[in-house]
C-alpha cells in the first residue's frame, strides 16, 4: 500500500493540535454552565484519535474549538503551532448529518469545497476523481443527495472534507445515523481511507467498538462538565482486519476499559 495520495507526512515532532487547560463556560442571565473543564490534549501528525463520552459531555464542542467555530473561555488551543482564533480553513469537517446541498449532484457537492476556497479547478477536479474512486462512489458522480442512501451521502461528505487535503479531519458522530451493518462497513472503509491518505483524524463517537477499532488512542470523557477521564493507547498496528480485530485480546481489553470508564461516569451522573 504505497499509494499515498499526498505526501504531507512531514516529519516534525510538533503536534498538529495542542490543547492546554481549555475551559468553556456558557453564561446565561440566570446560570453558568461549564461545558469543558481543564482539557489537555495533543494530537500527533497522522494520528487517529477517538473521543468517546456520554451525551452532552462536550465532545462536539471540543471539535468546534479545533475548527475555530467556538471560542475558548480560557486556556489555549493551537493548530500547527498557531493560536486558533476564528474559523479555520485548514480543517475538514464531517457532521452526523451529511449536510449536502440538495441541488448539487455528488461531484458538485464535493467541489463546493474547491469553489468556496478558490482552488485551482483542474487540480480540484483530479483530486475529486481520486476521492470518488477511493470512497467507492464511482458511477454515482451525477446522482443527487435524495437518490443516495445515508451511507453514500456520508461518503460524499467525507470526500468534500478531504478535497483540500486538510491538516486535520474532524468527524462528529459521522456514522451515528446509519444502521449497524452499514456503520461497520463505513468503519472498515474509513480505516482504509485513513491509511491511504495519512490524514490526522479526530473522531467523536458514542460507539466503543468504533472508537477502539479505528484509533491509535482513545480519549474517554466524563459527563458534564466534560473532563478527560483517561487516554488509552490502542496497540493494534495500522492494518486492521475487522473480524480479527474484534477478537484481538488488546482490542477486547481496551474496549472493556473504555466501557468501564463510560459506565463509571454514568453512575456518577
Amino acid at each position: 500500500m504505497t499509494a499515498l495520495l499526498h505526501e504531507k507526512r512531514v516529519t516534525t515532532t510538533q503536534p498538529v493540535v495542542t490543547i492546554e487547560n481549555l475551559n468553556i463556560t456558557y453564561s446565561t442571565k440566570r446560570s453558568r454552565m461549564t461545558a469543558l473543564d481543564g482539557i489537555n490534549l495533543n494530537v500527533e501528525q497522522g494520528e487517529f484519535l477517538s473521543i468517546a463520552g456520554p451525551s452532552g459531555c462536550g465532545k462536539s464542542t471540543l471539535l468546534k474549538v479545533v475548527a475555530g467555530l467556538t471560542a475558548a473561555t480560557s486556556g489555549q488551543a493551537q493548530l500547527r503551532g498557531q493560536q486558533i482564533k476564528g474559523p479555520r480553513r485548514d480543517i475538514g469537517y464531517v457532521f452526523q448529518r451529511a449536510a449536502l446541498l440538495e441541488w448539487r449532484n455528488v461531484r458538485g457537492n464535493i467541489l463546493l469545497q474547491a469553489e468556496m476556497r478558490g482552488m485551482d479547478k483542474a487540480k480540484a477536479a483530479r483530486r475529486a476523481d481520486e476521492l470518488i474512486e477511493m470512497t467507492g462512489l464511482g458511477g454515482f458522480e451525477k446522482s443527487f443527495p435524495h437518490e443516495l442512501s445515508g451511507g453514500m451521502q456520508q461518503r460524499v461528505s467525507l470526500c468534500r472534507a478531504l478535497l483540500h487535503e486538510p491538516d486535520v479531519l474532524l468527524m462528529d458522530e459521522p456514522f451515528g445515523a446509519l444502521d449497524a451493518l452499514t456503520r461497520e462497513r463505513m468503519n472498515i472503509e474509513l480505516h482504509r481511507i485513513w491509511r491511504e491518505t495519512g490524514t490526522t483524524v479526530i473522531l467523536v463517537t458514542h460507539s466503543v467498538a468504533e472508537a477502539v477499532f479505528l484509533a491509535n488512542r482513545v480519549v474517554v470523557m466524563s459527563a458534564r462538565p466534560g473532563t478527560i477521564l483517561e487516554t488509552l493507547d490502542v496497540p493494534l498496528g495500522s492494518h486492521r482486519d475487522y473480524a480479527a480485530t474484534m477478537e484481538d485480546p488488546d482490542f477486547v481489553r481496551v474496549s472493556a476499559r473504555v466501557r468501564e470508564l463510560l459506565g463509571a461516569s454514568h453512575t456518577a451522573e
Binding site: 475548527a67 475555530g68 467555530l69 474559523p87 479555520r88 480553513r89 480543517i91 469537517y93 457532521f95 448529518r97 449536510a99 446541498l101 463546493l112 469545497q113 469553489e115 468556496m116 476556497r117
Partner: peptide, 23 residues
C-alpha cells in the same frame, strides 16, 4: 439553510457573498 452547512462554509473561508450566492 441548514446551520451546519453555514458552519461548513465558514471553515471553507468563503466570503459572505459567495456563501449567499452558492448556498
Amino acid at each position: 439553510v441548514d446551520p451546519e452547512i453555514l458552519e461548513l462554509t465558514s471553515t471553507m473561508g468563503a466570503n459572505p457573498f459567495k456563501t449567499f450566492l452558492k448556498v
